[in-house]
């Protein structure tokens, strides 16, 4: 009994100390445990896989180690180079208009409009629509023979319809339209949220000074949004590097080839084709890791640029 009374306060003190120092770690543990299981472990396993020649269609290939052979093959693989070019091309073609449009839309939505809430929710509709469902519509719009767009363009193309999947640029355009349609509203809402934190007095005084709406946008809104813009640029760039669903669904042959000559096969679609369709597990894993490294490098460059911009302020 007496011992217990002695132990009581000191145990409570220890508990208190632990609560202060240890609890925060305990709170973040679930995230890191999950990240370990679903993030790090697969990453490590993929790295291991990428050094094998494993193909389920070849019995016994599971343990056939090829060292860094898959990576060496990848460096000289012209199809992979094409896929990278496509990824960056489509990435530029979709990210830039997407963010510019989002900025403009956010600016408009920031006005005191009638039915503002309706419009604000409306821009988010594409984002919550399943890409597969939207692709059905887009595939009809971009169909060669009976497509809506070709029908509209008839007066300008002079009877020869555009084969949207045949030419590289046309297919990039079509895929970019799908991506832009999906993500613009999402980015617009992020911009809108940031715009609403800009003090209204700034606009008021600018208006008194005789600044036009355009000058207000350019000199007040844009500088205030800089951190948000940097955030969306980084997120969109990473998203563009991992672009898969739109080109996958735009290839209606279901060969995962991204067009007859890989006109719009992105890097992840190429990874998917090699891994799943062609059953090259080892090679697919090597593509995955190479992509991961490329993404890290680009994210770093982004980050450094962003820091520069910020320090220049």
């Amino acid at each position: 009994m007496s011992t217990r009374r002695q132990a009581g306060p000191s145990a409570r003190a220890r508990l208190h100390r632990f609560d202060l120092k240890g609890a925060p770690y305990l709170y973040v543990t679930p995230f890191f445990a999950l990240f370990g299981v679903f993030g790090l472990l697969p990453l490590a396993y993929t790295a291991l896989l990428s050094t094998t020649a494993w193909s389920p269609r070849q019995p016994g290939s599971e343990d056939a180690s090829v060292g860094l052979g898959n990576y060496a093959d990848l460096l000289s693989d012209t199809n992979f180079h094409t896929a990278l070019v496509n990824t960056f091309g489509i990435g530029l073609l979709s990210t830039v208009p997407q963010l510019l449009l989002a900025l403009g839309i956010a600016h408009l939505l920031n006005y005191r409009l009638r039915g503002r809430l309706f419009f604000r929710m409306g821009v988010l509709v594409p984002y919550i629509t399943s890409i597969a469902a939207a692709a059905l519509i887009f595939n009809q719009i971009f169909a060669r023979d009976f497509g809506l767009l070709n029908w509209l363009l008839q007066p300008f193309t002079g009877g020869t319809p555009i084969d949207w999947r045949a030419s590289t640029l046309a297919s990039w355009f079509a895929v970019s339209v799908m991506v832009t349609w999906h993500w613009t509203g999402y980015n617009a809402l992020i911009y809108l949220a940031a715009m609403q934190t800009i003090p209204y007095e700034l606009y008021e005084s600018a208006a008194i000074d005789g600044a036009s709406r355009w000058r207000q946008f350019w000199h007040i809104t844009i500088p205030s949004l800089r951190p948000t813009i940097i955030f969306t640029v980084i997120v969109s760039t990473i998203g563009a590097l991992q672009l898969f669903a739109e080109p996958y669904l735009f290839d209606t042959t279901q060969n995962n080839n991204g067009g007859s000559e890989r006109q719009f096969q992105t890097a992840v679609l190429y990874l998917y084709q090699q891994f799943w369709a062609n059953g090259r597990y080892g090679y697919g894993a090597a593509i995955a890791w190479t992509l991961f490294l490329i993404t890290v490098v680009i994210a770093l460059v982004n980050f450094l640029l962003a820091r520069r911009i910020r320090s220049a302020e």
């Binding site: 084969d163 045949a166 042959t253 060969n255 007859s260 000559e261 369709a277």
Partner: peptide, 22 residues
């Protein structure tokens, strides 16, 4: 053989590219 289907698809794609002008 193990990759017969993949080979068939490759030919279909490449003949499609001929149709598109390659």
């Amino acid at each position: 053989g193990p990759q017969s289907a993949v080979i068939g698809k490759t030919f279909a794609d490449k003949l499609n590219s001929v149709e598109q002008g390659t």
